[in-house]
Structure formats: structure tokens, C-alpha cells
């Protein structure tokens, strides 16, 4: 366990460093942030002074070295635009994104497991087939297009829900969340559904396949033969077994959800880290882009680790040392 943990940690650290380097150099190559930030009225001397003030006059390797040294001390640099620590900017926005991803995840799992169970228990019924065909549609609708259509239908035509933005927030343990206000929830529904659709399709397929497999197993047949009610068989035996693949995949997909929130946040003007990333790329705010990526990688690593732990809890046969890295 410990060895496994250390190996994972080392690998993760390596990934973080390599990635930070690549992105750092890559963004350096795009252009000069001063071109975007500076007042157009500034003359050439002033442009030069600004470049020096932001440390952009130093050779690339020196900027890189400074960045790495500071990063070891937990300082990922200051935003060129806001003059504030990049990490702080991201942490301020992170709750909005996590909130969106978590709600989407809950929607995906509940709807997906329910529909998948149904389709698995009655594979040849019209409903079962419709659910499966529907899941193909779910795989196929591009996220941004779905978002646009939802806005068009629910915000423009029916006028039931807001078209975008985040609603009222309340402070909970120092974190601002919109989960506990009616206005906040009404703003959350459309983006969360948009983000959830693909995962829902995924869960439907997993749950259906799992159900089909489990339903043929001896212990389920035995349980049925014992006269257990069909709902008890489903909820206790089948559900528990299909949750293993579902938990694994969903855990891994939480990371991708946070990443894909970039698209959803853009469509719905959701003030999370995805939108911050896009804005920072546009402004060549390199410290923020690099910090964002390091933060996301860090979250991915945490999630993978949590999934492995959870997996070993759900299925005692799996020992951590054997779990895929």
C-alpha cells in the first residue's frame, strides 16, 4: 500500500513538472502578454519598461527557473492581469466549477443507473431498446450544441429557466455556493444537465451490461429461487454489483467533467475555472494558465487515488497494489 502510494506520488510529480514545463514554454511562444495588456498609447520605452516589470525580459530559461523555484514554495506566480497570486484566483473560482461537476455527476449516476437497470432487466422491451438507442444519441450530441438547444427551449421559448450566469450564493464554511438558494439552483439546472448527458449515457451502458451479467449469475438466480422479492434482488444484489464499474468509470470521469466544464461554462457564462482558463488563454496570462493546469492535474490525481480506494472497499478481491496505476 505504502509502496504503491509512493510510486503513484512520484509519477504524479513527474507528470506535473513535465506538463508545467511544456505549457510554460508553449505559451511563451504564442505571443507577448504585454501586447494585449498595455495601453495602446504607451510608447516603445514604456512597453519595454512593462516587459521588465513583469519579468518577461529575462531569457526563457531564467523565467522557467524562477517559476520552478517559486513553485516549490507553493507560489505559482502572479496573474499578469490582476496582479494577484494565480493560485488564489483559481481557488476563488473553484467552488463554482466543483458545484457544477458534482451536480452533473449526481444527475448522471441516478438517471444512468435507473435507466440502465431498466434496460438491463427488460432488454427486449420497447422501453429497453429505446433507452439504448437514446444513449447513442446521448453520446452523439456535442456538449455545446446541447447547451445551446437547452437555452433556446427552456430559456428563450418556454422562459422557465435563466439563460446563463450563476445565481445567488450563500456562504457555507467560507465557501460560496449556489446550491442552497432557489435562484442558484435554477441557474444550475441547465448547465448541469448539459454536462451530465454524456456521462448519463455512459452509466446507462455500464449499468445495463452489469445488470445483464449479474442477472445470469447463480447467486441472483438463487436469491430469486429463495423467493426474495424482485425489488430486493435488484436493489441489494444487482445494484451492489453494477456499482463497481460505475464507480470506477464515474470517478475517472469526474476529472474529465471538470475539464469539460470549460465548454459548458463558456456556453452558460458560468463563472468557474473553465471560463477563467479561456479568459487567461486569450490574455496570455501565463501564470494563471499554468496554475490552472497544475491544479487540474492535482485534482485528477486525487480523484484517481480516491477511486482506487473506493474500489477496494466495494470489491474486497481488489488489492491496491494490483490496481492499475
Amino acid at each position: 500500500m505504502l509502496v504503491y502510494f509512493i510510486r503513484r506520488l512520484g509519477q504524479a510529480a513527474l507528470v506535473l513538472v513535465v506538463m508545467a514545463l511544456l505549457v510554460f514554454v508553449g505559451i511563451y511562444a504564442i505571443g507577448n502578454p504585454v501586447d494585449v495588456l498595455i495601453s495602446p498609447e504607451a510608447d516603445l520605452a514604456e512597453q519595454q519598461a512593462t516587459i521588465e516589470r513583469l519579468g518577461l525580459d529575462k531569457p526563457l530559461w531564467e523565467q522557467l527557473w524562477l517559476f520552478l523555484v517559486n513553485a516549490l514554495g507553493g507560489d505559482l506566480g502572479r496573474s499578469f492581469v490582476h496582479g494577484e497570486p494565480a493560485l488564489q484566483l483559481i481557488l476563488e473560482r473553484l467552488p463554482a466549477t466543483l458545484e457544477l461537476a458534482l451536480v452533473a455527476l449526481v444527475i448522471a449516476v441516478t438517471a444512468g443507473v435507473f435507466l440502465g437497470l431498466w434496460a438491463g432487466l427488460k432488454p427486449d422491451s420497447l422501453t429497453g431498446r429505446s433507452i439504448m438507442t437514446g444513449s447513442i444519441l446521448g453520446f452523439s450530441l456535442p456538449n455545446f450544441w446541447l447547451g445551446l438547444m437547452l437555452i433556446l427551449v427552456f430559456a428563450v421559448s418556454l422562459q422557465w429557466l435563466p439563460a446563463g450566469g450563476r445565481g445567488d450564493t450563500v456562504s457555507l464554511l467560507g465557501i460560496r455556493t449556489s446550491l442552497f438558494t432557489l435562484d442558484g439552483l435554477s441557474h444550475l439546472i441547465l448547465p448541469a444537465v448539459t454536462l451530465a448527458l454524456y456521462k448519463t449515457s455512459l452509466v446507462i451502458r455500464l449499468a445495463r451490461a452489469g445488470t445483464r451479467e449479474v442477472a445470469l449469475q447463480d447467486y441472483v438466480k438463487f436469491a430469486r429461487a429463495k423467493g426474495l422479492s424482485s425489488s430486493r434482488v435488484i436493489y441489494v444484489h444487482v445494484l451492489k454489483n453494477i456499482m463497481i464499474p460505475v464507480v470506477t468509470v464515474i470517478g475517472l470521469e469526474l476529472g474529465s467533467m471538470i475539464a469539460f466544464a470549460v465548454v459548458t461554462e463558456t456556453v452558460f457564462a458560468w463563472p468557474g475555472i473553465g471560463k477563467l482558463l479561456i479568459d487567461s488563454i486569450v490574455n496570455l496570462d501565463r501564470p494563471v494558465v499554468v496554475a490552472y493546469l497544475m491544479m487540474t492535474v492535482f485534482i485528477f490525481i486525487l480523484i484517481n487515488f480516491a477511486v482506487d480506494l473506493l474500489y477496494s472497499l466495494l470489491d474486497p478481491r481488489v488489492r491496491l497494489s494490483e490496481a492499475k496505476a
Binding site: P123, G138, F139, S140, L141, P142, N143, F144, W145, L146, L195, L197, Y198, K199, S201, L202, R205, L206, A209, G210, R212, E213, L216, P245, T248, V249, L252, E253, G255, S256, M257, A259, F260, V263
Partner: peptide, 24 residues
């Protein structure tokens, strides 16, 4: 997921495939 633009489509696939499509 801009649906298909899945980040880990391999996963979805392999998971679904590995879980088997028994009736097939």
C-alpha cells in the same frame, strides 16, 4: 462531454465491451 468528444472514450468502450454484451 461534447458528447463524443469524450476525453476517455476508450474507457466507455472498453468498459461496456468488457462488461460484455451477454446476449450477443
Amino acid at each position: 462531454m461534447s458528447a463524443p468528444a469524450s476525453d476517455t472514450p476508450g474507457q466507455g468502450l472498453s468498459a461496456a465491451a468488457a462488461a460484455g454484451e451477454p446476449e450477443a
